[in-house]
């Protein structure tokens, strides 16, 4: 990670604030469909994985994400989001190919202007956010994780 001698600057933004929803285009890929999705979902918990097709650690964590999706995917809107310029510099087919190759089987969306990444203050890839049904972030992390970590991170956004 980056090192620096300079003092820390506050990140800003109150973690208890609800995130304003953003509507993104979805990608036609296994488990996904061509259309739109509003994130975070207005009425239920949401789990967002930020990945990119050029990101090697994102490949490494796909089996754990898939296992987490298998276990708890029904209880949240479970979605992977790429900040790439899908439809521009990166084709939709390239994203779908990557998805197929790494056994993705859930919703994939494209954040082409990085609007959702900005609202959720993404600091690198992969990153993940669990957001509760009221739109508040309950788990924010970057780097790869085990299946157990994903499941318990997602559970933080569930009211039970």
């Amino acid at each position: 990670m980056a090192s620096g001698n300079a003092p820390a600057v506050l990140g800003g933004g109150d973690a208890s604030d609800a995130v304003d929803p953003v509507t993104l285009a979805t990608v036609d890929a296994p488990g996904s469909r061509d259309g739109e999705v509003t994130l975070p979902a207005p009425d239920r918990p949401t789990f967002v994985d930020f990945f990119a097709t050029w990101c090697k650690p994102c490949i490494e964590q796909m089996p754990d994400l898939a296992a987490a999706h298998e276990r708890i995917g029904d209880e949240v809107l479970f979605v992977s989001v790429t900040p790439e310029d899908v439809g521009g510099a990166v084709s939709e087919e390239a994203v779908a190919d990557w998805w197929r190759e790494h056994d993705g089987d859930w919703l994939v969306a494209a954040d082409v202007t990085a609007e959702l990444a900005a609202r959720l203050n993404v600091g690198g890839y992969p990153s993940a956010r669990s957001i509760d049904a009221t739109g508040r972030v309950r788990w924010a992390t970057s780097g790869t994780h085990t299946t157990e970590e994903f499941v318990s991170g997602i559970e933080r956004a569930l009211d039970r």
Binding site: G11, G12, G13, A118, N121, V122
Partner: peptide, 15 residues
């Protein structure tokens, strides 16, 4: 502004 922890800087605030 100087944002020394650039990777963590709040994006909307910076914008």
């Amino acid at each position: 502004r100087a944002y020394p922890r650039g990777p963590q800087t709040d994006i909307e605030r910076l914008v």
